[in-house]
């Protein structure tokens, strides 16, 4: 049990923990847009940690570079893919459970629209 093995084990099982939490979240959250959160975040960090642990285990060879390429590709592609699914669902009219809010970020005040029937794309008051 040297230091490298301990670092590898800690990173590997932390990554496994995040992946299992993401799976539980995908099963457990109540509506579609809430399920986006574990799918977009938990998986991304989980796979990054597992591949990082394998990079530590391997040392510096060509395999490490390939692992790094895979890790960076998934770090870029996974949020993009989940955003694409979310956009498809939004255009197809999947409704979240709560009402819509109008937020103006430049004046940094939250203007909650009192009528919940307001259409999503139309921004009037700001």
């Amino acid at each position: 049990m040297d230091v490298k093995t301990i670092i590898t084990a800690v990173l590997l099982f932390t990554g496994c923990f995040f992946i299992v939490v993401a799976a539980i979240g995908v099963v457990r959250f109540p509506d579609f847009f809430a399920r986006m959160h574990p799918a977009g975040k938990g998986d991304t960090l989980g796979q990054a940690l597992i591949l990082l642990s394998l990079m530590v285990y391997e040392g510096f060879t060509l395999i490490t570079v390939k692992l790094f390429i895979i890790m960076v590709f998934i770090l870029v592609a996974n949020p993009t893919g989940s955003h694409f699914i979310a956009k498809g669902a939004y255009v197809a009219g999947v409704k979240p459970t709560k009402a819509h809010e109008e937020v103006d970020i430049s004046s940094s005040e939250v203007a909650v629209s009192s009528t919940s029937k307001k259409h999503c794309g139309v921004d009037s008051a700001s």
């Binding site: 993401a22 995908v26 099963v27 986006m36 796979q47 998934i74 699914i85």
Partner: peptide, 30 residues
């Protein structure tokens, strides 16, 4: 992967299934 497979089979709409399939693909790479 088996946990996410539940959502792929049961998922009420198409998008839930697509999302769960995407998650399963990431796990398969690892």
């Amino acid at each position: 992967v088996f946990l996410v497979l539940y959502r792929t089979i049961v998922g009420p709409r198409f998008f839930d299934r697509a999302l769960a399939a995407n998650v399963m693909g990431t796990k398969t790479v690892v």
